[in-house]
């Protein structure tokens, strides 16, 4: 480019120092969508590396000194996050980023480069096998949760965090893609959507009333083990209010409210029933 401050020969001249085996490799970008010269929207189709890093003729001119001036814009702690993100949002404002302004990550000062590695041929945040590693780098408690006895298959890389969350912001709570807990869960569990003739009130309100989606030591990702979870809301006469203990477990006993699926040995339709005789969620 002949524009003032821009170095010519970009990207070849940049990659001369930032090749695959250099201290600060950047050549991987050429294997990504950002490296497509044929795409008129790509950085390489316009000002090359300087499309994002700004006019950096000075950086290139004194590289032989061993400690050249920084590029105009760097994507690290030296540059204010808002300034870094403005570069990315210049092209990536729409679609999944529509809700970025005012989103929790934006307000918390998370930078795009904090999660994305655009110089890498495979951005870890965009790849199914590695995305979870990026998210748990900050959300550390989730890393242990996904190894619990009952969990969604995040540890197996059969699911990703972005199957449920949009880290760029959404219309509702907890960065959930659908915006709201139940509608998010229904994206994979549409059979539980209903509406049902006999609804279970806490189920209609939020799946998270009973389930911990990031992993639990209890079956079916329940927040507490049955029958005691059910007894936190159901204390009617006879079996719902009975005190359950070791006397209901073999060899002392065999309470049908404790063994196998406990309460759901009978109340099997806990997510709702569409049977006209299903008022007690048994049918």
């Amino acid at each position: 480019s002949a524009e003032s401050g821009y170095a010519p020969g970009d990207p070849q001249s940049c990659l001369g120092c930032h090749g695959e085996h250099s201290m600060k490799p950047a050549a991987g970008i050429m294997a990504t969508v950002h490296g497509q010269k044929a795409n008129p929207k790509s950085p390489m189709a316009t000002k090359g590396c300087q499309s994002c890093h700004g006019p950096s003729a000075t950086h290139l001119s004194d590289y032989s000194s061993g400690k050249p001036a920084k590029p105009a814009i760097t994507f690290n702690a030296k540059t204010p996050v808002a300034q870094q993100n403005a570069v990315c949002l210049d092209c990536h404002q729409s679609r999944e980023r529509t809700h970025w302004p005012g989103s929790p990550h934006e307000f918390a000062g998370v930078s795009c480069a904090g999660c994305h590695s655009v110089h890498s041929p495979r951005d870890k945040a965009m790849h199914k096998n590695t995305q979870v590693d990026v998210c748990v780098d900050c959300h550390k408690e989730k890393r242990a949760q996904m190894h619990k006895r009952s969990a969604h298959p995040l540890a197996e890389a059969e699911m990703t965090c972005t199957d449920c969350h949009n880290p760029h912001g959404t219309r509702g709570e907890s960065l959930l893609i659908a915006g709201f807990v139940n509608e998010n869960c229904f994206q994979c569990h549409a059979e539980k959507r209903g509406p049902f003739l006999w609804e279970h009130a806490p189920v209609r309100e939020s799946c998270a009333n009973c389930h911990e989606p990031h992993g639990s030591v209890h079956e079916s990702m329940l927040v507490t083990r049955g029958p005691w979870l059910c007894q936190q809301c159901h204390m009617a006469s006879f079996h719902p209010s009975t005190a359950y203990s070791g006397s209901g477990i073999p060899p002392a006993g065999a309470a049908q409210q404790m063994l196998d699926k406990n309460c759901m040995n009978c109340h099997t339709q806990v997510h709702g029933s569409n049977h006209p005789s299903g008022a007690r969620l048994t049918r």
Partner: peptide, 18 residues
């Protein structure tokens, strides 16, 4: 896990389990 340990199909009087 007491839900399944030592629980045969006929352990419970009124439930035929798996």
């Amino acid at each position: 896990n007491f839900s399944y340990d030592n629980v045969a199909a006929d352990t419970m009087a009124n439930v035929i389990a798996l």
